[in-house]
Structures are given as C-alpha cells and as structure tokens.
C-alpha cells in the first residue's frame, strides 16, 4: 500500500482507539443538532432548509478542526515517534499528506453523521437538495482548509495544547477577517475579505459551487501542507 494511505490508516485508527474521535463527533453532533432543531421549531420559518445550520457551521468548524488536527504531528514529536517516522523510507510530504487525509476522513465521518437531519427533513416535505449538497461540499472544503492550517501548526510544536490554541486562533481569524472588513472598501479590506474563508463559503452554502471558491480552499490546503512539509524538512537539514 502507498505509504500515505498506510500513515493515514494508522492515524485514523489511533483516533478511534483513543477517546478523541468520539468526543469530537459527540460535541459536533450536539451543537449541530441544536442548530438544526432551533431552525425547525422556529415559528417564523416556513421553508424547509438547513440554512441556519450552514451559516453557523463554519464558525463551529473553526473550533472543531483544530481539535482534530492538534495531535497529528505534535503527538509524534512528544512521544519521539517522529524520529522513527523521519528515518523511514518515506518523504516528509507523504507524512504530512497522510496525516492530513486521516484528519479529513474523520471530519467527513463527523459531517456524515449529520446526514440524518436533511434525510428526516426530506421525509416531511419537499426538500431542495441543491443547497444541502452544496453546503456539505462547502463544509468539507472549508474543513479541509482549517485542518491543513492545523497540520501546519501541529508541525511546529510538541505540545497539543499549544497546537489547538494557536490553530483555533488562526482558523477563527480566517473566519472573521471578512466580517471585520465588511464595512470598508479599501484595498486592504478587499484583500482581507478575499483571504477570509467566510466570504467564499456564502456562495457554497446557497448551493452555488463556484470553482473559484474551491480553488481558494485548495490553495490554503496546498500552502499549509507545503509549509508543514517544509517545517519537517527543516528539522532534518
């Protein structure tokens, strides 16, 4: 098997043998469920949609993605297994990508666990699946961007606490840049709005999958993972 998959498989299995994965899933479901019910029982709402869920979810992802990614490389450094990993015939990029894929799979599982919401909605009425599918795709890409930032931060420290706090800070900043700059229209504001993840998510959550938005997320993933890979290599050379 490809070393990337082998590393991803080990990491994923490790998160399910420890409690982390379960806590992350349970917490996310609790909050997502809360959002979902609020919307359903909102007397003012007359249409069948998951708009509230998809507008709030990015903010919660900024919390949850760091919880998933915090240990990826930090724990390897703390337990000294990084020394082993780095002396195996495996490139640093393969290590980083394998870790990232494990985290992304866990996130996909978490998001997949919320699928009963739209399914139950569809059973009581005529649900427009377009925005729902778009929303899920968008959440996955957004989550991938946050996770990659988390991988980068995790490569820089051996302390999981530092990793989660710093990546939380970064993701939160990425999420709120746009709003902070929303009342002005200077170049800086425009740049900030472009860098921010929230603006790119708006379209997606309305069911419009724009390749520019996806490219934006992929760019963040690519930059962060390259960064993490460079951090590992710098340790070596």
């Amino acid at each position: 098997m490809n070393p990337i998959l082998s590393i991803a498989k080990r990491e994923l299995r490790a998160s399910f043998t420890s409690v982390t994965a379960y806590i992350v899933i349970a917490l996310f479901l609790l909050i997502a469920g809360g959002l979902f019910w609020l919307e359903i029982f909102n007397a003012a709402s007359t249409e069948l949609s998951m708009r509230t869920f998809f507008t709030r979810a990015p903010f919660f992802l900024a919390f949850f993605a760091p919880a998933i990614s915090m240990g990826l490389l930090a724990e390897e450094q703390r337990s000294k297994t990084l020394e082993l990993l780095m002396t195996l015939p495996v490139t640093d990029t393969q290590v980083v990508v394998g870790k990232f894929l494990a985290a992304l799979t866990l996130l996909a599982i978490v998001l997949g666990a919320t699928l009963p919401y739209p399914i139950s909605l569809a059973s009581i009425g005529d649900l427009d699946w377009g925005p729902i599918i778009g929303g899920y795709v968008g959440l996955l890409f957004l989550g991938a961007a946050y996770l990659s930032v988390g991988v980068l931060v995790s490569s820089l420290t051996r302390d999981q606490m530092v990793a989660i706090l710093v990546s939380f800070f970064c993701c939160f900043l990425l999420n709120t840049f746009g709003e902070l700059a929303s009342h002005t229209d200077g170049t800086v504001a425009q740049v900030l709005r472009f860098i921010s993840t929230s603006g790119h998510f708006e379209n997606v959550s309305r069911g419009v999958i724009d390749t520019r938005d996806l490219l934006y997320y992929l760019t963040i993933v690519l930059l962060s993972l390259s960064g993490a890979s460079i951090v590992l290599s710098r340790r070596r050379w």
């Binding site: 098997m1 082998s6 590393i7 000294k80 990084l82 002396t87 195996l88």
Partner: peptide, 29 residues
C-alpha cells in the same frame, strides 16, 4: 533509509497500538 534499521535511544512506540499491528505498519512503511 530503506537499507537501515534504526532503534533510537528513546524507543519510538505508538502506545495505543497492538504489537503485531505496530510491526506490520512499520514493515509496510
């Protein structure tokens, strides 16, 4: 690295893994 077997001073183990799985994983890598 493909031609070397290395045991570092601080033994690098994944505590949560079963011995067989750990060795299998490393053999694979």
């Amino acid at each position: 690295r493909a031609r070397i077997g290395y045991l570092p001073e601080s033994v690098p183990l994944y505590d949560q893994m079963v011995v067989f799985d750990y060795l299998d994983h490393l053999a694979e890598l």
